[in-house]
Simulated assay, not measured.
Amino acid sequence: MKSYGIRPSLETYNLVIRGFSRIGQFDDALVYIDEMKNAGLKPNTETYDGLIQAYGKYKMYDEMGRCLREMVSSGCLPDHVTYNLLIREFAKAGLINKMERTYQALLSNRMGLQSSTSIAMLETYAKFGILDKMEKVFRRVLNSKVCLQEDMIRKLAGVYIENLMFSRLDDLGLDLCSKTGSTDLVWSLRLLYHACTLSKKGMYSIVQEMESNQVPWNVTIANIMALAYLKMKDFMELEVLLSELPSRYVKPDIITVGVLCDACMSGFRGIPVKRIWTRTGFFDDTVEMNSDPLVLIAFRKGKFIRDFEAMYSLVEAKTKKKGSWTYCHLIDSVETHTKTRLMGS
Rank of each mutant, 00 (worst) to 15 (best):
Ala54Arg: 12
Arg140Met: 10
Gly129Ile: 08
His80Tyr: 15
Lys127Glu: 11
Lys2Glu: 12
Glu35Gln: 13
Asp79Trp: 07
Leu113Trp: 08
Leu113Cys: 14
Asp49Tyr: 01
Thr82Trp: 12
Ser115Pro: 04
Met64Phe: 02
Arg88Asn: 05
Ile130Asn: 06
Val31Ala: 01
Asn143Trp: 05
Asn84Gln: 06
Leu85Met: 14
Ile52His: 04
Met99Cys: 12
Glu70Asn: 15
Gln104Phe: 08
Ile6Asp: 04
Thr12Ile: 14
Arg139Trp: 12
Tyr58Trp: 15
Lys92Cys: 03
Leu51Ser: 11
Asn109Lys: 13
Gly129Val: 06
Arg22Tyr: 12
Arg140Val: 05
Asn143Asp: 14
Ala54Cys: 06
Leu95Lys: 12
Ile130Ala: 01
Asn38Tyr: 03
Arg7Tyr: 02
Ala91Pro: 01
Gly56Gln: 12
Gly19Arg: 11
Phe138Arg: 10
Ile17Cys: 03
Ala126His: 05
Phe20Ala: 02
Arg88Val: 00
Cys67Glu: 09
Phe26Asn: 08
Leu122Cys: 11
Arg18Cys: 03
Arg140Cys: 03
Leu51His: 02
Lys136Pro: 00
Asp49Gln: 06
Met64Gln: 07
Phe20Val: 05
Lys127Gly: 00
Val16Cys: 03
Leu106Ala: 08
Glu135Trp: 03
Asp34Trp: 01
Leu113Lys: 10
Leu10Gly: 02
Glu11His: 07
His80Pro: 00
Phe128Tyr: 15
Tyr55Gly: 04
Ile87Glu: 04
Ser108Pro: 00
Glu135Cys: 13
Thr47Pro: 10
Lys92Pro: 00
Glu35Val: 06
Ala29Ser: 12
Lys37Trp: 01
Ile130Ser: 05
Met134Trp: 06
Gly94Tyr: 04
Gln114Asn: 09
Val16Trp: 08
Tyr32Gln: 01
Gly75Cys: 11
Ile52Trp: 04
Leu10Val: 11
Leu30Trp: 15
Gln53Glu: 13
Gly129Gln: 07
Ser21Thr: 07
Val141Asp: 03
Tyr103Val: 01
Lys57Phe: 10
Glu89Ser: 09
Thr47Arg: 09
Val16Ile: 15
Lys37Pro: 00
Ala29Tyr: 12
Gly5Val: 12
Leu30Asn: 12
Ala39Gly: 03
Leu51Val: 09
Leu51Met: 14
Glu35Ala: 07
Arg22Cys: 02
Phe138Pro: 01
Tyr4Leu: 15
Ala105Arg: 13
Arg88Gly: 05
Ile52Cys: 02
Leu131Pro: 00
Lys127Leu: 02
Glu70Gly: 15
Ala91Asp: 00
Ser74His: 12
Ser21Met: 05
Asp34Ser: 15
Tyr55Leu: 10
Asp62Lys: 10
Lys59Phe: 06
Arg139Tyr: 12
Ser21Leu: 08
Met99Ile: 09
Glu70Tyr: 07
Arg101Asp: 13
Gly19Met: 06
Met99Asn: 06
Lys145Ile: 01
Lys37Ser: 04
Leu51Gln: 07
Ser9Cys: 04
Leu15Lys: 13
Lys42Met: 06
Arg139Val: 08
Val81Ser: 04
Val137Phe: 07
Arg18Val: 04
Asn44Trp: 09
Tyr83Met: 13
Leu51Gly: 09
Leu41Asp: 03
Leu142Cys: 00
Lys92Tyr: 09
Glu135Met: 14
Ser144Trp: 12
Met36Asp: 05
Cys76Tyr: 07
